[in-house]
Every structure is written in structure tokens, then in C-alpha cells.
């Protein structure tokens, strides 16, 4: 499971970095989105990966980390997703304004055919 998650994060991150470096604004947005997926999965994974363990205290189970998964990374991921979503939406608005003002979706507004 760890290997699979690491591969997923790596693929997302790599694809994200490649797309961010592309010259079209849409590619940059997609790249930033993929990067935020990679980052969110990474935050989630630092608490350790466990199956069938609740993040909340349940009656009958002793309250130690043997029986529970760390709830804090899950809370962090939730906040990070919301904030990342909001700022990406804001970026999209600016992207549309740039498209309207320059007539092209190049990140520098240049009308070349690259």
C-alpha cells in the first residue's frame, strides 16, 4: 500500500510540475491542481497508513495509537483542500481575465504558436 501511494504521489507531482512549466495557462492550472492532489495525499500519508482504524475515540477500545489512526493529518488535509480549491478558483478568474484582455491563452500573453 505504501509503495502504491508513493507511486501515485510521485506521478501526480511529476505530471504537475511538467504541466506548470508549459506555456498555456490551462496547462498551468491543471498542473497546479495535480500538484495540490499530490500534496494533499502526501499530508495524509505522514500520519501513517492503517486500515480499519478509526480516527475517533470509540468506547471499548483503549485510547492509544495502536488502535487509532492519527486524526490530525486528516484535519489538515481537509483545510488544505478547501484553501487550495478556493485559490485555484481565484486563479481561474484571473486566467479568464487574461484570456479576455490578451486574446490568447499564453502565460505571457504573447501570440506565438509554440
Amino acid at each position: 500500500m505504501e509503495v502504491l501511494l508513493a507511486l501515485v504521489i510521485g506521478v501526480f507531482g511529476g505530471a504537475g510540475v511538467w504541466l506548470v512549466l508549459r506555456p498555456r495557462t490551462f496547462q498551468v492550472v491543471m498542473g497546479l491542481t495535480l500538484l495540490s492532489y499530490a500534496v494533499n495525499l502526501f499530508i495524509f500519508s505522514v500520519g501513517g497508513l492503517f486500515l480499519d482504524k478509526p480516527p475517533l475515540v470509540t468506547p471499548g477500545l483503549p485510547t492509544d495509537l495502536e488502535h487509532y489512526t492519527d486524526p490530525l493529518p486528516q484535519a489538515l488535509v481537509l483545510t488544505a483542500i478547501v484553501i487550495g480549491f478556493a485559490t485555484t478558483a481565484l486563479f481561474l478568474v484571473v486566467l479568464l481575465a487574461s484570456r479576455g484582455l490578451s486574446g490568447t491563452d499564453h502565460v505571457d500573453g504573447a501570440r506565438d504558436e509554440s
Partner: peptide, 29 residues
């Protein structure tokens, strides 16, 4: 146009910086 153009770059750079911030924070945690 000058504001939107530089703003586009500014926002993209800061979104990337925020990703780095989160990665560093997660490693520290």
C-alpha cells in the same frame, strides 16, 4: 493588462509556494 499579466504570474508562483509550504509542514509533522 499589465496588472492581470503580472498578477497571473504572481498568483501561480504563490500557489506553488503554498504547495511547498504544505510539503515542508507535513514532513515536519
Amino acid at each position: 493588462w499589465p496588472r492581470v499579466r503580472s498578477g497571473l504570474h504572481y498568483i501561480a508562483v504563490n500557489l506553488l509556494a503554498s504547495s511547498l509550504f504544505l510539503i515542508g509542514l507535513a514532513v515536519l509533522y
